[in-house]
Nucleic acid binder design. Structure first.
Lengths: 238, 238
DNA sequence: TATAATCAAGTTGTCAGACAAATTTTTGTT
DNA sequence: AACAAAAATTTGTCTGACAACTTGATTATA
């Protein structure tokens, strides 16, 4: 699955770049291409992806330089991954509780978000994620019934709708997340064992397929302090 | 400033992609290259940037397809821009008040964040951003004195430290922002004319130069509802 | 007729080599 | 030592080619 030369190239370059000091110059393109066994054109395409991510900077006539100290490559919000995966990297022991799968019918908000008619049959998956038995997040996913029906819900559920859809081979591409902060509503507060009005970080996300269809509309509530969400922002004019 | 053919190409492609329906196929690479007046190699480099951003998907032998409905290209957090610029796009009339520039000495947090010794001379720039005369954000930037000193502080200040540094030609590259939610501390609450403990969205950012130096460590507090921060997250395995 | 195999055209992936443009280093001259 | 010119280096772009893959039409076969 995937383009062998390009992907290998990309990870080899990633190693090279992350192991370089800030401001260090990379070998010239002809050198690198020969050393990595690809043509300069292919190398340049891979380089362009790192430039897009703001990790390197190229100057005609001078060379290619590593932009400093973005310590962990792509461990931020740029890449969509499940809390499971995230927690794994943070050495957190995470578990799922209060799992509820139910069938509902689309209200105005959900119909609009999912691009379906009002009162369309939907499936909601609610659960509380716990770290060391303390609630740290409440996740509510809503999917069209033909994407995931309450009946066909998997017997073993790791807690991640994303992982389930990916494992099934769904052609997912991107998720668009709106980031906000809110005071905990009563129901969420109860689930997270906090006071109503306590501060929560909230993501409202739409998950898209290749064809542009929204297959998952979700509200995620996070207790501040347990997760560190960060993002690398590129300065506009480079 | 920049690479003429490539940048022009990129914005022309952006128009093409954002105006295409979800799942639509783009013209073939030879066609596009001829139409846009560049070689296929250059075109492919530009395409790769959009692929990196998850906006298009390419399938060997089949074609290049637009991934659906990421309505506004790059208006999210991926690109660092000032609130001014942001507000401009949202047709918000924004103004600055309570502007305070002061000289301080680095405490432990700031020394660590900026990578300078303890008690180094620093400059802090605080201000409140208002939309329609209502406070909507409180920004606190801290910079080493040699980057920006209180003395040389510009007479006319638009409210954006970023815009100032960029206008001066500083080689900025990326900013790393940590995203969290907090209850308003007393001092921030007073400035934003809200109650202590009211919910705020907070960004803690480090702004890097080409050489990897941190030139700005900032805390930004946003009143929920006035700004819509969003981010496009790419599914990991594509 | 229905189904399977084959073929042809089109498209992306990669390559080699070349030259232009910008920068850096070296060399020559005063 | 200081400055100017030339050479070498490096990224930016172009051209043309072929390989690998997908898709749809065509042909052969049961």
């Amino acid at each position: 699955m995937g383009n062998f030369p390009f992907q290998r190239l990309q990870s080899e370059l990633a190693v090279l770049i992350t192991h370089a000091k800030a401001g260090e110059r990379l070998p010239s393109e002809p050198d690198l291409a020969k050393r990595l066994g690809v043509s300069r054109a292919t190398l340049r395409e891979a380089m362009r992806t790192f430039e897009t991510q703001g990790l390197i900077r190229r100057r005609q006539g001078a060379g290619t330089f590593v932009v400093g100290q973005v310590p962990v490559i792509e461990s931020g919000l740029e890449v969509l991954e499940s809390l499971d995966t995230m927690a794994g990297r943070m050495n957190l022991d995470i578990s799922v509780s209060e799992l509820t799968v139910s069938q509902v019918f689309a209200d105005k908000d959900h119909a609009e978000a999912l691009g379906v008619p009002l009162a369309t049959k939907l499936t909601t998956v609610q659960r509380v994620m716990r770290a060391d038995s303390r609630p740290v997040a409440h996740l509510v996913d809503t999917l069209p019934d033909d994407v995931l029906s309450a009946q066909q819900f998997p017997d073993v559920f790791g807690g991640s709708v994303l992982d389930f859809l990916l494992g099934r081979g769904d052609p997912l591409t991107v998720s668009r997340a709106d980031i906000s902060a809110i005071g905990a509503p009563a129901d969420v507060a109860k689930l997270l064992e906090i006071q109503r009005g306590d501060v929560l970080l909230k993501f409202t996300s739409r998950l898209y397929t290749t064809s542009g269809r929204v297959v998952d509309f979700s509200h995620s509530y996070f207790l501040p302090g347990y997760f560190h969400f960060h993002i690398v922002r590129r300065v506009g004019n480079i």
